[in-house]
Amino acid sequence: MTYAVAFQELTLGYDRHPAVRQLDGEVADGSLTAVVGPNGAGKSTLLKGMTGALRPLAGRVDFGTCTRSDIAYLPQQSDIDQSFPITVVDLVAVGLWSEIGGFFGLRAALRARVDDAISAVGLTGFESRPVGSLSGGQLQRALFARLLLQDARLVLLDEPFTAIDAKTMVDLLGVVQRWHGEGRTVITVLHDAETVREHFPETLILARDLVAHGPTAEVLTAANQFRARQMCEACVGPPHDCGRHAS
């Protein structure tokens, strides 16, 4: 089986303090993978490393045949300045960046695709609304519409269902399932184990070090989750060899 992304002794961190250590493994092309782990386990850091926003302290990320434009990334909501005066359609339309770039306008055909994406996430009628007036769930729908337009082979989602209502979560999970059905590779950071068990066939458990990676039914066990918590708690102290030998 070909891989969409492979980690080779990947170490990521900030100010030379590792947040993800010596990660090895592959995410299969077309798979739907949840990345889980306690707070501070390095989940968001891993995604940032995969986008190129964070350079590895050691090791590398190999994207195989994927290029930069084949990757779409949805950060946590807090990274977006909602007070900035742009409308929903402006926010969504930049999903077409690979076609319009920084300088070209939206032709009628492209505008129709923007409208289709907005409709697909249930935001029709909100096109002219300022982003600042949207609820958390509506903003997340708009960001999913932007991802739809990016038409990426590899989709990275960082806690996409946090602080949104149940209906929105169900709708957006439907979008994720649709991507999976289309053969795209989706990697999602999640906290809720039940959501992972129900909707994500593959799971990667992280606690700075890799705890386990494989089919969700085999990997997302109480023992592995307990081990991940122990490893993270052991890392609260000095950053030496904490938690590597927790069992």
Binding site: T51, G52, A53, R68, S69, I71, A72, Y73, P75, D79, I80, D81, F84, I86, D90, L91, V94, W97, S98, G102, F103, V131, R146, Q150
Partner: peptide, 16 residues
């Protein structure tokens, strides 16, 4: 457009 994006969602601009 890049400037608006740099202000509103700099992480997205850096990604694309």
């Amino acid at each position: 457009r890049p400037l608006v994006l740099e202000c509103a969602d700099p992480q997205f601009l850096r990604a694309v």
